[in-house]
């Protein structure tokens, strides 16, 4: 029963030797499997992280991805979620230390795939909020749509991501400020856009279960515009369920 263990170990071994127990001279033959495994897993990461790849170049990306596949092999055959751990890996990857924004760009890309495959859910627009007693609004709790993800970054990661993929013209980024990003999937296509100051804290608090009033009051940024944030929340349909204050979790 040791046959497959030896085979598995040799797939990623650095000595490039085929495992024992194979018939005939099997070097090049076994290398097909070794190559399939490496190319397949690295390719899955290349497909999921195109902006990171564009920022560091193909050679750097593949070498980094190779290291990642060896230290973090996928635990599941569902490769669409492979690489959730890549952003943290990048943050601790010494050769990428002079690109401190790279991990945050990877966080945006990881969120983008999760959003693409997230469960379908209602997107509550103005009509869903129209009948609510105005005095109850501050006490509303909302579930955010499963496709909504928030990425807080110490660098202008949203702009860098968009420039790397040609979604906006590349150029100098000035001023170089922290950026908070909203990843969403209004229909089937994922959107990645910059949130205004304070909106990230507001949406994150809502997502964590805070009532609307408390979430707005808790947004510490002095530039936070609660009316604009509410318009974004409702206009973009970021919520999928409303919990009225009197009945907590029972009413939709």
């Amino acid at each position: 029963m040791a046959t497959l263990s030896g085979f598995a170990a040799a797939l990623t071994a650095t000595d490039l030797q085929p495992p024992p127990g194979l018939a005939g001279p099997a070097g090049r033959r076994f290398a097909v499997y070794r190559n399939n495994v490496a190319v397949g897993l690295i390719g899955a990461l290349e497909a999921r992280f195109p902006a990171v790849r564009a920022l560091v170049g193909e050679e750097f990306f593949r070498a980094m991805a190779r290291d990642f596949t060896l230290s973090h092999p996928p635990a599941s055959p569902v490769l669409m979620v492979y690489g959730d751990a890549l952003p943290d890996f990048i943050a601790a990857f010494p050769p990428a230390a002079d690109l401190p924004y790279l991990a945050d760009v990877a966080r945006i890309e990881a969120a983008r795939t999760r959003a693409y495959h997230a469960a379908d859910a209602p997107r509550l627009g103005p009509a869903a909020f129209a009948g609510i007693d105005p005095t109850a609004v501050a006490g509303l709790r909302l579930d955010l749509n499963p496709a909504v993800e928030l990425v807080a970054a110490a660098h202008p990661a949203c702009t860098i991501f968009r420039m790397a993929l040609g979604l906006e013209p590349a150029g100098p980024i000035d001023p170089w400020l922290p950026q908070h990003t909203l990843v969403d999937r209004p229909a089937h296509d994922v959107t990645v856009r910059l949130l205004p100051p304070g909106a990230h804290a507001f949406l994150a608090a809502l997502g964590a279960g805070a009532p609307l009033g408390a979430a707005a009051a808790g947004a510490a940024d002095p530039r936070f515009d609660p009316a604009a944030a509410l318009a974004e929340l409702i206009g973009s349909g970021l919520a999928c369920r409303i919990h009225l204050p009197e009945t907590h979790d029972d009413d939709a």
Partner: peptide, 21 residues
């Protein structure tokens, strides 16, 4: 074929020996 071993998924259809076991 097999594609996972020891908790790791290899993303390839790998061969097995053909024995009674």
């Amino acid at each position: 074929a097999w594609s996972s071993h020891g908790g790791a998924f290899f993303n390839d259809l790998l061969p097995l020996p053909y024995t009674p076991a």
